[in-house]
Amino acid sequence: MSGLSLSGFFAMGGYAAYIWPAYAVFFIVLIADFIAPSLRRRRNLCELRTRLARQAARATRTPPASP
């Protein structure tokens, strides 16, 4: 690193246009990879709950055959 200045750090010796996009790709891809399963989990559980609710509703609607 040339000097201790912050702008010197961000300039990366003139290679800022290559280094920062590379680091951005690294973080964006990994963050997306990490968020994807939690979204899928929420959707799956939501679907499962509606299915269970439907089953429960059907069970209460049909009266028992014998008292």
């Binding site: 990879d33 399963p37 939690s38 899928r40 989990r41 799956n44 499962l48 269970l52």
Partner: peptide, 29 residues
């Protein structure tokens, strides 16, 4: 970390008919 969270989601989907998954779904609901 990523593998664990993915495997957990898949196990829930695979076993969605089982009681333990039902319990988790109801608890989070």
């Amino acid at each position: 970390a990523s593998l664990f969270s993915r495997v957990r989601v898949d196990l829930l989907a695979m076993e969605s008919g089982k009681d333990w998954v039902r319990q988790i779904a109801e608890r989070e609901g």
